[in-house]
Design a protein around this nucleic acid. Sequence first.
DNA 1: CGGCTTGTTGATATGTGTCAAGGCTTGTGG
DNA 2: CCACAAGCCTTGACACATATCAACAAGCCG
Lengths: 216, 216
Amino acid sequence: MLTTSQAAERYRPEPNGINAGETRRLPPSTVLWVLPGQGIYREGERASSLYQVQSGAVRVYRIMRNGHRHILSFYGAGEWFGLQDGDIHDDFAEAICDSQIRSVPRAGGPMPPINLLDIALSSLAIANSRQLIVARQGALERVATFVQEMSARNGGANEFELMMSRTDVADYLGLTVESVARSFTKLRTRHIVQLFGHGQRYVHILDRNRLAALST
Amino acid sequence: MLTTSQAAERYRPEPNGINAGETRRLPPSTVLWVLPGQGIYREGERASSLYQVQSGAVRVYRIMRNGHRHILSFYGAGEWFGLQDGDIHDDFAEAICDSQIRSVPRAGGPMPPINLLDIALSSLAIANSRQLIVARQGALERVATFVQEMSARNGGANEFELMMSRTDVADYLGLTVESVARSFTKLRTRHIVQLFGHGQRYVHILDRNRLAALST
DNA sequence: CGGCTTGTTGATATGTGTCAAGGCTTGTGG
DNA sequence: CCACAAGCCTTGACACATATCAACAAGCCG
């Protein structure tokens, strides 16, 4: 649970990245090249464009009043993000690795072939599912669900790289870094996954059944 | 946290209520009268209509694989619900008190004056905000946020009736009934709210500032 | 009245947060 | 090439919040 001392580690978004003015000035369907940690849009900025990940990956998060960062979603190649209800962003979007982002101004109305309603409804479905996970599952179950999610994002591969740090995972799952590390360790010692490579960011799923059984 | 024994108290949705066939047969803009606990739609049913609360209130929830019920949202007068990404409902909607529900078939496309995208985007914003609450706040903070939310739903009144049981509140906030009761008690002993009436379901907010300070 | 439902309270268990320390990898500068 | 510092990840000991289990009170309805 969140107690007092966490306000000390207030999260500060990267000051780099494009700003609102630049965004608005972009012609239709511009491609941005962004570096790890670089911002794509910021809270308070006008939400005038929609974005699609061409390559790489993005995190979208909010900062809570107590300074805590909560990651609402990760987006991978092909996925759209940046659609909001108001015309002002209430969250931040940043690359988590070298990425190409297509930016499409939302002026005038929906443009084929993208259907804004479809994007909104699928975002809604994902948000609702995540609510169940963060509200009702234990640490191990959350991490197991996360691993499956990442596998699915990699075409269902058994072996893949996590592009985000343990801190990102923790802020996504509503846990601490330590709890995430302990849950990964538990998956490893139970021979459900294997971890290797830089900072244990490569995952090899050994037992899909038991992994799926955890994400109940 | 959810552990084993909770599977024992699996939630069973009410068997009463309209079924898919009846729903589809309804002419445009039909009004349904529903009783407390009565279903409006069910998981697995075709999502062919959109619904608006005319009077009363509705809960929309999912049943998790472990049998636990999680309430995604409550809806009051004027609010729309039942919009999904697929054409099959993955959740349940039930009245929580005597209610009138307007049912509008979604055939053909969006009909003025309702804008499906607006409904979807505002649902998305709410879902994202709730994710922060259930993932990152303590029990007292969640209940404080809930009380403010219910006040807002009653036009910002300082005194109002909660239409739902403590169990509903618990399933909405991701807590147990006991934790909800203890949090209400804490709000009462701190003279932030007063509770009275049937099952302490009437709330009188005494100190809005301290209430708001909690929902930080 | 007696049984049922709903809400509250208490004692205890358990899971995760917190605090602290150490390992590993990477990068930098002598 | 090696020494050292900085990140990131992991592990351990402990604290603390909430779940669990149990009992009881209040209101409602037969």
